[in-house]
Design a protein around this nucleic acid. Sequence first.
DNA 1: TATGAATGAGCCTTCATTCAT
DNA 2: TATGAATGAAGGCTCATTCAT
Lengths: 191, 191, 191, 191
Amino acid sequence: MPKVGMEPVRKKQLIEATLEVMAEVGYHGTTISLISKRAGLSSGIISHYFGDKQGLIEATMRHLLEALKITQRIDDPLERIDFIIENNFSQTQGASSATNTWFNFWALSLHNEGLHRLQCINHKRLERNLAFSYRKLLKPEQVKNAAASTAALIDGYWLRYSMGSVGNGDFSEAVARCKQYVRDLVAQYGR
Amino acid sequence: MPKVGMEPVRKKQLIEATLEVMAEVGYHGTTISLISKRAGLSSGIISHYFGDKQGLIEATMRHLLEALKITQRIDDPLERIDFIIENNFSQTQGASSATNTWFNFWALSLHNEGLHRLQCINHKRLERNLAFSYRKLLKPEQVKNAAASTAALIDGYWLRYSMGSVGNGDFSEAVARCKQYVRDLVAQYGR
Amino acid sequence: MPKVGMEPVRKKQLIEATLEVMAEVGYHGTTISLISKRAGLSSGIISHYFGDKQGLIEATMRHLLEALKITQRIDDPLERIDFIIENNFSQTQGASSATNTWFNFWALSLHNEGLHRLQCINHKRLERNLAFSYRKLLKPEQVKNAAASTAALIDGYWLRYSMGSVGNGDFSEAVARCKQYVRDLVAQYGR
Amino acid sequence: MPKVGMEPVRKKQLIEATLEVMAEVGYHGTTISLISKRAGLSSGIISHYFGDKQGLIEATMRHLLEALKITQRIDDPLERIDFIIENNFSQTQGASSATNTWFNFWALSLHNEGLHRLQCINHKRLERNLAFSYRKLLKPEQVKNAAASTAALIDGYWLRYSMGSVGNGDFSEAVARCKQYVRDLVAQYGR
DNA sequence: TATGAATGAGCCTTCATTCAT
DNA sequence: TATGAATGAAGGCTCATTCAT
C-alpha cells in the first residue's frame, strides 16, 4: 500500500512554496514549475492535491487569512485592541515578506468571486473584532466609526510601510502610531 | 504621406485604452491585443511607441500618479487638507474604476525598480502635502505623526472601500470620516 | 493472505469497464483512471494484468470480436444467413452502444499490426460464413460476389444506422433490408 | 502593410497537412506540432486561423465531405448512379489514403455535435442523390429501399476494402460490384 | 507612421506509468 | 494480489514580439 496521510504534509509544503515564490517573483512570475521545484516535488502533484493552479492560489490565500484570526482570549479591551493591531502587522515581519503576495491577492480578488468573498469576510471580521472591544471603551455612537477608522489605519499603515516608502523595514513605528490613535480616541470619546 | 506629430495623440490613446482594459479584466487579463483593439489601433503600434508592453504599463502608471498631484493653490490649511482627501478619493469614482489597476501597480512596484520609485515618491508627496498644512494647525511635534496617520487613513479607507467590503460603492462616507479625523486631531492637538 | 485465481475475474471486470467507458466518452476520453474507477479497482491494476493501456485496449477489442463468432449450428442455409445478419446487428442494441467503440477500433487497427490482423480475420470470417450457406443456395459463380456484397451491406447498414443518420435508433429496419437482399439474390441467382 | 490574402492559402496548407498527418499517424498521434511542421508553418498559426485544434479538425472534415458533393450534371439515371458510386470511391485512391481519417471522423462525430451533424447531412445527401435517379428506374415503392441499400453497400464495401481485408488496395472490384448491384435491382424491380 | 501575419517560447494541464508498501 | 501517491513527458494554447510591407 502506498504512503498514506501525506495529504496535509504535501499541501503544507506546496502552500509554503507558493508563498515563497510569490514573495520572490510576484504573482506574474509564479509558475507551477517554480512552485513544485521549490517544494521539491513534481509539477503534477499540484493538480493532484489542488485541482489546478487556481486551487493552490486560493488555498494559499485562505491560509494567509487564517493566520489573521484571533485565537487568544484577552479580557481587557484596550489590551485586546493592541493585540489585534500587533497581530495584523506581525504576519509579514519574516525574511520572506508576504507583502507582495497580499497586493496580488487583493488584485486577484477583484476578478475572482471566491477570493473576493474571502477578502470581504476578513475585512469585516477585523472591524467586528475592533468594535467588540470599542463598545466597552467608547460612547455607543462612536463605536462603528472608531472600528472602521482603526481598521483603515492599520491597513493604510501596513500598505505604506510595506511599500517601503516610509519606515525602516519594520512595522514597530506603525504599530506605535496605531496604538496612539486608539488612545486618542479613548481620550476624546471615552464613555 | 504619413501623418506627423501623431506621437502624443497615439500615446494618450494607448494609455487610456490600457486603463480601461486593466479596469475591466485585471492586469492578468490585459494583453497587447486587447489594448490595441480598444484603442482602435494595431498591435504593432505599442512596441513602436513604448518599446514593449512593460513600457506602456509604466507610462500608464506614471500617468495615473500624475493625476494625484495638486495643482490648485488653497490657502486655508483645513480647506487644503480637505481638498487633498477629496482628490485622493476622486480618481476612481468614474464608471470604470481604476481600483484593480492600483492594486496591480502596487504589486508590480515591488518587483520593478522604476515603478517602485514612482510609488515611493507619490507616498512621500502626500505626507509632505499634508504636513505642509498641518504645520499651521497643530503643535510642531504632532505634525509628522498627523501627516503619516492621515495618509495611512486615506489609503486604508480607499483600500477597504475599493474592495467593496464596506460602503455602498461610493467613497463619500470614507471622505467624511477622514475629514472628521482631521478635525479630531485639531481639537486635540491644535496649536 | 492475498486471494488467488483472481486473474480472470479482474480481467473481465476491466474489459467490461473499458467497453462502458469507451461507449460513454469515446476512445479519446478513455483514461486509465476512468476505467479503473468504473471497475472499482485501482489504476495500478491495469499494468498488473495487461502490461499497459494498449494491452487492455487490445484485449477489449479481441473480446468484442469474439462475440461475433457463430457458435450455434443451423442447418437450413437461408435461416443460417438470417442468423448471421441478426448476430451482426445484435451486439450493440444494448443501452450503452458499442458503436463508437467499433469506429475507434477500426481507426486504431490501421496503425496497429495486431489489431489490424484481428479485424481482417473477422472480416474474412464473415464472408466465409456467408459463402458457406450461399453455396447451397446460389449458382457457384455467384457465391463469392453474394458473400462479399452481403457482408458489405451488413457493415454499411450498421455504419449508417449507428451514426444515427437514418432509422429510429434500432436496427430492425436494417436487418429486414439485409434479409430482403438475400432473398432477392436467391430469386435472381438461385440454383 | 503585411501580406494580405494569405488566409485561404494558409488554411488550405493546414488542412492538407492535417489530412497527411492523420493518414500517417492516426488522429491519436496528430498533434498541432506535427501539423504545423508538415505545413512548414509555426504552431501558433493554427489558433490564428482556426481558433484551436478542434477548429482545424472540423474544417478538415468539412473539406473532405465537400469533395463528395456531385457538381456535374448527368441526365441518364443509370450513368448518374454509376458516377455517384465512382465518386464515393475515388476520394481515397491517392497515395496518402484518407481512410483512417474517415474512421476517426466517424468516431469523433459520435461525441461532437458539429461533426455529427455534418456526417448526417452527408449520409442523407447520398441517399437523396441515389433516390433521385432510382425514381426514373424503379417502381416507386422500391426507390427508398434501393437508395438506402445502395448507400449502405457503397459504405460497406468502402469500409472493408479500406481495411485491407479484401481486394488489392484498389477499389475497382468494389466499384464493379456496386454497379452490378444496381443493375440487378433494375432487372428485378425496373418499372 | 502603421499594419497584422507569423513566430515560438513558455505556460498549465493531462495522464500513462512506476514503485514503495 | 493490490494500492494510489508521485512522476514527468507531452500536448494544446496564449501572447509578446518581430518584420515585411
